[in-house]
């Protein structure tokens, strides 16, 4: 049986990708780094790197935001796309990039101790301070 595929892209379409398999339930990260990178907070799904196919990496850029993480974005449109755990076998893909239906629901908030002060988390999902 053919596995499900989820397609996505940046704002301008220069960086398009396909994830094979169901999307793991997304996590919302409220740390200050994710908030600066995205402009609000990051919601992403952690997929196996082997399940992610990026069709054209010409406009894909990486910013090394810490020892263990690099963040992928499109050089043309600035879309915040990927959170790459460099030494791990997974990469987090921004949920906003996916074409609907995603077939999944957010399940957890993390780094809520560092969240922004202009909004509240009121969806009833579990919250981890880190």
């Amino acid at each position: 049986m053919t596995e499900v595929q989820h397609k996505g892209q940046c704002l301008c379409g220069a960086v398009a990708f396909t994830v094979t398999g169901d999307l793991p339930t997304p996590t919302a990260c409220h740390c200050s780094m994710c908030r600066r990178h995205t402009g609000h907070f990051l919601v992403s799904t952690e997929v196996q790197k082997t399940a992610l196919q990026i069709h054209d990496e010409t406009q894909l850029r990486w910013y090394r935001s810490s020892d263990r993480v690099q963040r992928g974005f499109c050089a043309t449109c600035g879309a915040s796309l990927f959170f790459d755990a460099i030494y791990r076998d997974w990469v987090a893909v921004s949920m906003g990039a996916f074409e609907p239906p995603t077939g999944t629901q957010m399940s957890l908030h993390i780094f809520t101790a560092d969240k922004g002060d202009y909004y509240v988390i009121a969806d009833g999902l579990p919250q981890n301070p880190q």
Partner: peptide
């Protein structure tokens, strides 16, 4: 006040939704 935009373009730009 902060405006939170859920349009497709904002969601692709930010990875979730826009807040400005």
């Amino acid at each position: 006040i902060v405006t939170l935009c859920h349009c497709t373009e904002c969601r692709r730009f930010t990875g979730h939704h826009w807040a400005a």
